[in-house]
Design a protein around this nucleic acid. Structure first.
Lengths: 211, 211
DNA sequence: TGGCTGCCCAAACAAGTGCTTGGTAGGCTA
DNA sequence: TAGCCTACCAAGCACTTGTTTGGGCAGCCA
């Protein structure tokens, strides 16, 4: 629906439309969808607000295109891992790494999703947000359960709860992660995996202290 | 500043002011501050929007009172733990439990803080939100470092990063936790502590498989 | 040369926004 | 009874919001 059907030299200068979308995405990410006006977007693009409607039907259709495009790409990667023959733990790690890469490569899109998806999902138009969420939940919980069966993960895990913890912790990193900062997405992913897999407590050193 | 200086029977029916604040808090939490109109609040209270201004200066002063009141109470509890003589790990656990209790007892306030603090903190009036954040960061990182020194926590922790992970994971739970649901805040806190302390990986079972 | 297309401006519109104003009804107290 | 206080209404104001309309201009292709 939002696809371009005409073959075009994709590596030429980004079309004006895509430029505008990128500008809008950044603003939506910073201030939130509802809190960003079409005049804000137009100002940032150096045009008047009405001119935006030459390129887009509405403000809503802008986020729509931003989010749906991003989600399609992300889920393609997820599905690739899910249907691979990696063992549960490797799958788990791969999915985490993909997620942090997404936070790096599509910072604005992830931020918008984190901040506004809840509000947007109320409208029919954005029903796919909920659909994808359910799909993702299934994928995650499945992976966790598989890992529990295989002995990779602790047998006493409440997979549903663990799923929520992990999902939220990963995505919420978009609030402080800066693509241009010192820490790379890989660094963060490795540290996160280390923590979530092995915990922060020192190993083999029960509660008693006194050396 | 927002205190009532007149002595009053505190357990009588909540003052109309507090009633209205509770209504506003719920709406702010559900739809976001910017996305909740004074007419929404007034409707929910069964009065006209203008009548709200008999009780409050502005819409802003409503969130202000909601957030500052909540934060004061929360930080009082945090400080109590910080200045106690508990060992690092016990302090850590106490702070986590306090946080989940807050999510249970002050669900709306936490949600507002999670969703709108970033936007609100841009205004001078809400500068205290940032101040408190820094204060909280100091408390947490200090606790983590103390725990690393004492041998309670892993020696290779990036305390700054771990602090962010934990902070976010805890508070973001407000998105799915329901005070009236099956899981109690205590349940969630214990499971969370178990995961974050010991990890989700099975113990003493390195990467090699083959039984 | 003429028409087409992509991109934009200028101006406005209706709906919605936070907030103000002047007034009123009822209860409490001196 | 008079005066005051709390809680509210009715109406509106100034401003912001997303969106529409009609037109202009540059480049390109025939």
């Amino acid at each position: 629906m939002t696809q371009h059907s005409t073959a075009q030299p994709t590596n030429k200068v980004a079309s004006r439309r895509e430029e505008l979308l990128a500008i809008a995405a950044e603003l939506f990410a910073q201030r939130g969808f509802k809190n960003t006006t079409v005049r804000d977007i137009a100002d940032a693009a150096g045009i008047l607000s009405g001119s935006l409607y030459h390129h887009f039907d509405s403000k809503e259709s802008m986020v729509d295109e931003i989010l749906s495009t991003f989600q399609s790409e992300l889920f393609r990667k997820y599905d690739e891992v899910a249907s691979s023959d990696l063992d549960p733990r490797a799958k788990f790690e791969a999915v985490i790494r993909i997620s942090f890469e997404a936070i790096h490569d599509h910072h604005s899109e992830v931020a918008i999703y984190q901040n506004d998806a809840g509000y947007l999902a109320e409208f029919d138009r954005f029903g796919y947000l909920n659909d994808r969420n359910l799909q993702l939940r299934k994928l995650w919980v499945g992976m966790l359960e598989e890992g529990v069966r295989s002995g990779d993960f602790r047998p006493d895990l409440d997979t549903e709860l663990v799923y929520r913890f992990i999902r939220d912790t990963v995505w919420v990193a978009v609030r402080w992660y800066r693509p241009s900062g010192d820490l790379s997405a890989q660094d963060v992913a490795e540290q996160y995996l280390s923590i979530i897999l092995d915990g922060i407590a020192a190993r083999r050193r029960p509660v008693k202290k006194n050396p």
